[in-house]
Simulated assay, not measured.
Amino acid sequence: MAEVKVHGIFAGPFNKRVELALKLKGVEYEYIEEDRSNKSAELVKYNPIYKQVPVLVHNGKPICESLIILEYIDETWESAAPLLPNDPYQRSIARFCANLIDDKLMGAMYKVCYGKGEEKEKGLDEVSEVLKYLDNELQDKKFFGGDNIGFLDIVASYIALWFGAIQEAIGMELLTKQKFTKLSKWIDEFLCCGIVMEHLPTRESLVPLYIAQFEAAKASS
């Protein structure tokens, strides 16, 4: 039997992607909790460049970066619950949207949370732009992956859960049902899935963490 380990942190959106993909594939794994302030020798060994989670270790071989890990999981356990679309064009769209979330949306949210004046306003505009694009991309589908949770749904779990917790922590409502109807419906569908409910942390557990993080940043500025 293959040995599979996941190095992560509590409620980390990136390692939760990896764990959710493994759960969907029915792959058993060992979870290893890391301490951000005291990283294990194993983590540093497996990811010497970034020294960050997540790291998937499969039969002693480390794979780093969540998007790369998701594709590795899909290719390695290809017979169960395919994550990426079969069509090359649709695969390219899924990858583009995934990068849009990780690069532009998360970067924009950083500006919203920590920026001031024009920088914060620019962040708000960028957040709205990305959410609108993803809202349109859903079309009339239940999930980004169609009838079943796929690669982009897993990546967008950040929007379904962590994004909402950040909104609550900073006292702003950026993703509303009135403005982003399809995306809001997708969030409800996604969070109601049994495997998602069992695996992801609750919003209630995330909000205090973000409040503490933002207050600490404000105190040190």
Rank of each mutant, 00 (worst) to 15 (best):
N148I: 13
S37W: 14
C192S: 15
T202C: 13
A80H: 13
L56T: 02
S220K: 10
I187C: 02
A11S: 08
L43F: 15
A80K: 11
E121Y: 15
E173D: 14
K5Y: 11
A80Q: 11
K16I: 01
C97N: 11
Q90L: 02
Y46L: 05
D135N: 04
G8L: 05
K5C: 10
Q167C: 03
P62V: 13
F163R: 01
A216M: 10
G117D: 15
S79G: 04
I154H: 08
I63G: 02
F10C: 07
L209S: 12
V130D: 01
S40N: 07
E173V: 11
E215T: 10
F14I: 00
N148V: 14
E168N: 00
G115R: 10
Y50V: 00
I9Q: 04
S128I: 10
S184F: 02
D103E: 10
K61V: 13
D147S: 05
Y89T: 05
N86I: 09
K25S: 01
V55H: 14
F180H: 09
L100D: 02
V112D: 05
A169I: 10
Q52I: 01
Q90F: 01
A217G: 08
Y29D: 05
L161D: 05
I187M: 03
R95C: 08
I195V: 09
T181Q: 11
G194Y: 15
S221L: 11
Y158Q: 08
E28A: 05
F190Q: 06
Y89D: 05
I187L: 06
L152F: 07
D147C: 02
V155C: 13
F14M: 01
L67Y: 11
K120A: 09
L134C: 04
P201Q: 13
G12N: 01
D125F: 14
K120P: 03
L100P: 00
V207I: 12
I68F: 14
P48M: 00
G164K: 03
G12P: 01
Y110D: 13
S37F: 15
E168S: 01
S157L: 10
S157I: 06
I69C: 02
W162H: 11
E33I: 05
I73N: 06
A80E: 13
D87F: 09
I32P: 15
I187N: 04
N99I: 04
Y29A: 00
